[in-house]
Simulated assay, not measured.
Amino acid sequence: MMISDKTVIAIVDDEESICKGLERLLRSAGLTAKAFLTGADFLRFIQNNRPDCLVLDLNMMPMNGFSVLDRLALLGWKLPVIIITGDDSEEACERAMNKGIAAFLRKPVDGQVLLDAIERAINHSA
């Protein structure tokens, strides 16, 4: 799949300011962005919608990013996922990579680095 204005990127982060900032960034790049403050809200969204990529925070409550990844796997979803997190531990990175994520980026994330990671992830999954 090529990235276009029809490309939908879901964002899950419990920090509203990060969600809003990432939505602005993605929209300025011509992408459609849909942000969620909880993993549960995102999981309800995908019952009737299919985003092209997921940008996911790890450290959220009550459902953390690993729980969202586990739920996606349980549902059989094959979706490119980019982790953005303040947890730069080797353990978190290794655990996320073992779940098949496309990229592991540390906050604060550089906008162009994120856009490049999204493009690679979507093109790789095509």
Rank of each mutant, 00 (worst) to 15 (best):
M2R: 09
I3W: 01
D5Q: 14
K6S: 09
T7Y: 00
T7L: 08
V8L: 11
I9K: 01
I9S: 03
I11N: 03
D13F: 07
E16P: 03
S17V: 13
S17K: 03
I18W: 00
R24N: 05
L25I: 15
L26K: 06
R27T: 12
S28P: 00
S28I: 04
G30W: 03
L31D: 07
T32A: 14
T32W: 00
K34N: 10
F36V: 00
F36Y: 01
L37S: 09
L37A: 12
L37D: 01
L37P: 02
G39V: 04
A40V: 01
A40M: 09
A40Q: 15
D41S: 15
F42W: 14
L43S: 02
R44E: 15
I46N: 10
N49G: 12
R50L: 10
R50E: 14
R50F: 05
P51D: 15
L54T: 05
V55L: 11
V55K: 14
D57R: 02
D57Q: 08
N59M: 15
N59H: 10
M61I: 05
S67N: 14
V68C: 01
D70W: 00
A73K: 12
L75I: 04
G76E: 03
K78H: 12
V81L: 09
I83F: 06
T85H: 03
T85P: 00
D87G: 01
D87N: 15
S89T: 15
A92L: 04
A92C: 11
E94F: 14
M97C: 11
K99M: 11
K99G: 01
K99E: 08
G100Q: 15
G100C: 10
G100V: 09
F104M: 14
L105P: 06
P108F: 04
P108I: 02
V109Y: 10
V109M: 07
G111R: 09
Q112R: 15
L114K: 07
D116F: 06
D116V: 01
A117D: 07
A117H: 03
A117L: 08
A117Y: 07
I118W: 04
I118C: 13
E119D: 14
E119K: 15
A121W: 06
A121L: 02
A121Q: 05
A126R: 11
